[in-house]
Design a protein around this nucleic acid. Structure first.
Lengths: 338, 338
DNA sequence: CTGAAAGCGCTAACAC
DNA sequence: GTGTTAGCGCTTTCAG
């Protein structure tokens, strides 16, 4: 194995000089930098991270924390692989690597995170979910470990950095888009009401409807295992003469579409549909879904960038919320009303 | 930070003794082991991995290599998140962590793998795809880096350890299952013919049909962007009076189902459908799919276990192919013929 | 069965 | 600008 010493010998300098060149230290003359770099290249030198870690206390590794898998289906959402992939790619550019924490429950998750922290395996974390009173957040906060959260702020807004889309604005835009297409009787449909995402999007729907002076309806639940809820949805559609649905996400939309077909409601002929995420599901079957692209690549890139800034900053950085723009992808599920 | 020295002092022994206790070295008396362990617990000692790595050369970290994302949709398959999650969980049990390599092309991928290897960040790799003449495999082989592959053997069978299902047997079982249900005119449908998986499953179909003396049809392609291929599929179904389709996977099946509905063919009333993977897609819309569960948890566990054996073994271990059993999940897409 | 001591490869004051 | 010199925390011969 070729070490810093070999390089130093070959370049005729001291090991510490080589170390400085590695860090592109400004107090080394260009001339010796060139000489040392040449020696490195000639010898095929690659720094040993373990040694670097031990000496510097930095790991050049970040931890990526997935949501607890109580609902295993959740991980089937393409979002997670997408963001994993963009974060890893981005990290490579910065010479960082990525390690994973994933488990069934928050308790096991916090154990993993704790271990990674205590063993000094990572310099910081990116968390891919946000829950109130999350023990993982609590632990990292208590131990001054840098971290950012991808998702909707949910408490701690002033202590934690969040990276997210503007879900309210997105839902509001959905209303406006449908209105432009001639729709006025619009319903908001979701499969759960607790999450920040669902609440924010519902709020955006309300705002949009209010601004356009349209008749607002409380959020409709879609639970494929609950007949009364399903019944209620159909009733409301008829009663309100709804011509368009804003649905919480791609996956749910596919299910809703099939559900509607059981009642002979065709999308988009009888009813239009607009949704969020632009995942692989939106092009699974026809009609392909008109959907908001949440720009996962950008979410991933921003979260890693910001985390590295926090890690590298000597003084604690102020928390902030970073908003990533979205775009509307028009496909086949919305039709223009005359 | 509490170090091995603090523990040694507290327990009244030499640091090297503490180190030995950490490794559960057999030459330490039970008495001192107990004493040292108590000291560790009291002080809340956690070994510093960087120091361990540097001194021992081991990292207690494995690399997980995802397929190149030329076809980004591929990562939408729930398989990848599932196996990522089982491997990480399993690794934690063994006190290992997991790092990720994922990128757009094999060339970038091999760069990442190379870096992880040269920097000595990992002790070995698990590769989640197999391609002929894959540069990643080549590199690891050339550099004596331990690794295993999850997927179908595709060359190098004698040098590399594979973990996979028996895809031939699975497809053969599909034929037999359909036959029991009264089906005789059975077609095999896939979205691509090149991969080992698709070839193996097709071979299994052929074997099964042959054994039952049924009429075999060449593999049918399903390409949603190619009208002539689609046309051909429908023609063949009519011509052969097919009553059942064996389809390469869940995702494709959902698309095929919708395609069939355009021609007024209902599943399972007019035509039955059996498929593979048992991912979230198989319960996305009705009829829920009858599908083979490939037992991802087992694939993940076996691959990690085996990799650790290879890593820990002083002498090179013989390569082998590990077959993980599958199970059939009966749902709604196959009906019994009278 | 346990202790002593020499590193593992690199970093970071501190000199000059 | 560059060299000197202690370590970082742990492992691993080698003694005894």
């Amino acid at each position: 194995m070729v070490t810093i010493k070999d390089v130093a010998a070959k370049a005729g300098v001291n090991p510490s000089t080589v170390s400085r060149v590695l860090k592109d230290n400004s107090s080394i003359s260009q001339k010796t930098k060139d000489r040392v770099r040449k020696a490195m290249a000639d010898l095929g030198y690659v720094p040993n991270v373990a040694a670097q870690m031990l000496a510097s206390g930095l790991t050049y590794n970040v931890g990526l924390v997935f949501p607890p898998l109580l609902t295993p289906d959740r991980l089937s959402e393409p979002f997670f692989m997408q963001i994993l992939s963009t974060i890893t790619t981005e990290a490579k550019q910065e010479n960082f690597t990525v390690s994973i924490a994933t488990d069934m429950t928050v308790d096991e998750l916090v154990e993993q995170v704790k271990l990674m922290h205590l063993q000094k395996r990572v310099d910081g974390f990116i968390i891919l979910y946000s829950e109130k009173d999350d023990p993982v957040q609590r632990y990292l906060l208590d131990n001054d470990m840098p971290f950012v959260i991808v998702g909707a702020p949910d408490g701690f807004e002033n202590e934690i950095t969040y990276i997210d889309n503007d879900n309210q604005l997105m839902a509001k835009s959905a209303v406006e888009y449908l209105y432009e297409k001639g729709h006025k009787n619009i319903l908001f449909v979701t499969d759960e009401l607790e999450s920040e995402i669902s609440q924010e999007r519902y709020l955006g729907y309300m705002k949009g409807m209010m601004k356009l002076k349209l008749d607002r309806t409380p959020a409709m639940l879609f639970d494929r295992h609950n007949p009364v809820v399903l019944e209620k949805l159909i009733e409301t559609i008829e009663e309100k003469k709804a011509t368009a649905l804003i649905i919480i996400g791609d996956t749910v939309s596919v299910r809703v579409m099939q559900f509607l077909s059981f009642y002979d409601l065709k999308v988009p002929d009888d009813i239009s549909l607009i949704t969020f995420n632009n995942s692989a599901f939106s092009k699974l079957i026809h009609p392909y879904l008109t959907t908001f692209d949440i720009n996962v690549a950008n979410l991933g890139r921003s979260s890693l960038r910001r985390l590295l800034e926090i890690i590298k900053s000597p003084a604690p950085l102020p928390s902030e919320t970073i908003i990533v723009p979205f775009t509307l992808v028009e496909r086949e599920s919305v039709r223009r009303l005359k």
